Measured scan of single mutants.
Amino acid sequence: SLEGTEKASWLGEQPQFWSKTQVLDWISYQVEKNKYDASAIDFSRCDMDGATLCNCALEELRLVFGPLGDQLHAQLRDLTSS
């Protein structure tokens, strides 16, 4: 749920159509929501749009996002199937 936050830029759009900015917004949101240590994320490797993100295998997401990769992968699957 997104109570208390302004409507996120990526909400209501299919992930494969996200811009690079929307991807970063979504990642930041997941980091906050999961109380994850953002210093463990290599943000220089997050410079990708939604289509690229959706094409990432779980292993790739783990490389870039560490333990949060599993969470991101699961969330993406939910978003693309809805």
Rank of each mutant, 00 (worst) to 15 (best):
1 S>V: 07
1 S>P: 04
1 S>A: 15
1 S>R: 04
2 L>N: 15
3 E>C: 13
3 E>G: 07
4 G>R: 12
4 G>W: 04
4 G>H: 07
4 G>C: 14
5 T>W: 13
5 T>K: 05
6 E>R: 12
6 E>V: 12
6 E>Q: 13
7 K>E: 08
7 K>P: 09
8 A>I: 04
8 A>P: 10
8 A>V: 07
8 A>S: 14
9 S>T: 13
10 W>L: 04
10 W>A: 02
11 L>H: 06
11 L>Y: 05
11 L>P: 13
11 L>S: 10
12 G>A: 09
12 G>F: 15
12 G>R: 09
12 G>W: 15
13 E>Q: 08
13 E>T: 14
14 Q>I: 07
15 P>Q: 01
15 P>R: 00
15 P>L: 03
15 P>S: 02
16 Q>M: 10
16 Q>L: 07
17 F>Q: 15
18 W>R: 00
18 W>C: 00
18 W>L: 00
19 S>D: 06
19 S>N: 11
19 S>G: 07
19 S>K: 06
19 S>F: 01
19 S>A: 03
19 S>E: 05
20 K>S: 11
20 K>A: 13
20 K>T: 05
20 K>F: 02
21 T>A: 08
21 T>D: 14
21 T>G: 10
21 T>F: 14
21 T>Q: 15
22 Q>M: 10
23 V>T: 11
23 V>Q: 00
23 V>F: 01
23 V>A: 09
25 D>M: 02
25 D>S: 09
25 D>W: 02
25 D>N: 06
25 D>A: 09
26 W>Q: 01
27 I>H: 01
27 I>W: 01
27 I>R: 02
27 I>M: 03
28 S>P: 00
28 S>E: 13
28 S>T: 08
28 S>Q: 13
28 S>D: 13
28 S>N: 08
28 S>F: 10
28 S>L: 13
29 Y>H: 14
29 Y>Q: 07
29 Y>G: 08
31 V>N: 05
31 V>I: 14
31 V>P: 00
31 V>F: 04
31 V>K: 15
31 V>Y: 03
31 V>D: 01
32 E>I: 14
32 E>L: 08
33 K>F: 05
33 K>Y: 09
34 N>Y: 02
34 N>C: 07
34 N>A: 11
34 N>D: 02
35 K>C: 11
35 K>E: 09
35 K>A: 09
36 Y>L: 10
36 Y>K: 05
37 D>S: 11
37 D>W: 03
37 D>G: 07
37 D>P: 07
37 D>Y: 05
38 A>Q: 06
38 A>V: 09
39 S>C: 06
39 S>V: 05
39 S>A: 10
39 S>P: 07
39 S>W: 08
39 S>T: 08
40 A>L: 12
40 A>T: 05
40 A>C: 09
41 I>V: 06
41 I>F: 05
42 D>W: 03
42 D>L: 04
43 F>Q: 03
43 F>L: 13
43 F>R: 12
43 F>I: 06
43 F>V: 07
44 S>Q: 11
44 S>F: 05
44 S>P: 08
44 S>Y: 07
44 S>L: 11
44 S>C: 05
45 R>F: 08
45 R>C: 03
45 R>V: 10
46 C>I: 14
46 C>E: 07
46 C>R: 04
47 D>N: 10
47 D>P: 06
49 D>K: 08
49 D>E: 10
49 D>P: 02
50 G>S: 00
50 G>F: 01
50 G>E: 00
50 G>D: 00
51 A>I: 04
51 A>F: 11
51 A>Y: 10
52 T>C: 08
53 L>M: 11
53 L>A: 01
53 L>W: 00
54 C>Y: 04
54 C>Q: 05
54 C>T: 12
55 N>Y: 05
56 C>S: 12
58 L>Q: 12
58 L>I: 07
58 L>C: 14
59 E>T: 15
59 E>W: 05
59 E>C: 05
59 E>A: 12
59 E>R: 09
60 E>C: 05
60 E>N: 07
61 L>Y: 05
61 L>S: 01
61 L>P: 00
62 R>M: 07
62 R>P: 00
62 R>F: 03
63 L>E: 09
63 L>G: 12
64 V>A: 09
65 F>A: 05
65 F>R: 00
65 F>H: 00
66 G>S: 00
67 P>T: 08
67 P>W: 08
68 L>N: 04
68 L>E: 02
68 L>V: 12
68 L>Y: 10
68 L>H: 01
68 L>A: 11
69 G>F: 02
69 G>W: 02
69 G>T: 11
70 D>I: 15
70 D>K: 15
71 Q>L: 12
71 Q>D: 12
71 Q>P: 07
72 L>H: 01
73 H>C: 03
73 H>W: 06
73 H>D: 12
73 H>L: 07
74 A>R: 13
74 A>G: 14
74 A>M: 15
74 A>P: 06
75 Q>H: 11
76 L>R: 01
76 L>P: 00
76 L>F: 03
77 R>A: 13
77 R>V: 06
78 D>S: 12
78 D>G: 14
78 D>R: 10
78 D>F: 10
79 L>R: 14
79 L>K: 05
79 L>N: 06
79 L>C: 04
79 L>P: 08
80 T>A: 03
80 T>P: 04
80 T>V: 12
80 T>I: 03
80 T>D: 01
81 S>C: 06
81 S>R: 11
81 S>V: 13
81 S>M: 15
81 S>H: 08
81 S>I: 13
82 S>G: 15
82 S>A: 12
